[in-house]
Design a protein around this nucleic acid. Structure first.
Lengths: 135, 135
DNA sequence: ATTGACTCCGTACCATGCTACGGAGGGTAT
DNA sequence: ATACCCTCCGTAGCATGGTACGGAGTCAAT
């Protein structure tokens, strides 16, 4: 069986050991301690843990907080489809807003880069470049 | 002349008074203290301060840290066009990466919402919905 | 001249998400 | 069996970006 050490688990998802332990404390990953007294000591991890850890990274990249990630993980095993859809929809709306914001910012910066082209002397109108882009 | 109080300045940019004072401490906005001893006391603000404050919000929305915002504000009055262009270009690259990431996350969520449509029973495959989207 | 709202200022506190430290014990290669 | 590295665990610290508090002082209106 693919029994990974905590270091291997961490490496497999591109995080540090301390981060894994932090997620355990936060309840995002199964905590070693609840094991029966017979199994106490060094814990080993399987593919499920890796999937779970990777999901955490992906969800975080999507802008979910760790608290929301915890809820999503709980929902994954629950029957509450409505709640899951709701969270997805709400996050999609937020993502659309954020993507638009970033695209506006990108425009402002590219305007700035153009106006600030090589050759000309003097300062660039940095503040002005953002004026038509209300945050 | 349009002499604003700190509260009016803050309201005009959609932030709180404490945030304005925080930015002053961080050096992003002119700090009242350096005024000559004769002018000490309550400070008033003009349109330039409002523009500056709004710029801070916009730049923050673009993903700049406050430290970078401080540098941008300094650059706005400097002659270092190369540095300004460099910062703009680097940030555009980061923005493109981030926008792509968010779009991938959006896809995963919209896949999730579809698979988790109303009517069906049982849990939704939340973790699985992100599996093809490496963060 | 007193009230009440606002300002100034320092300092403390908060949430989020890690990251580091230190000591005790386990596992393994030599 | 002796290193040596890894694990476990609690606790502490850090970076970012604020937010809150409390005591003065200031200002305008009544």
């Amino acid at each position: 069986m693919g029994a990974l050490s905590i270091a291997e688990l961490a490496r497999g998802a591109g995080v540090g050991v301390e981060t894994v332990r932090y997620y355990q404390r936060r309840g995002l990953l199964p905590d070693p301690r609840p094991q029966q007294s017979g199994t106490r000591g060094i814990r080993h991890y399987g593919p499920d843990d890796t999937r779970r850890l990777r999901f955490i990274r992906a969800a975080k990249a999507a802008g979910f907080t760790l608290e929301e990630v915890a809820e999503l993980l709980a929902l994954d095993r629950s029957e509450d489809r409505a709640r899951a859809r709701e969270m997805a929809r709400a996050r999609i709306a937020l993502l659309d807003a954020r993507i638009g914001e970033l695209q506006q910012a990108r425009q402002a910066l590219s305007r700035l880069a153009k106006e600030c082209a090589a050759g000309d002397a003097g300062p660039c109108p940095i503040i002005a470049a953002f004026e038509s882009a209300p945050a």
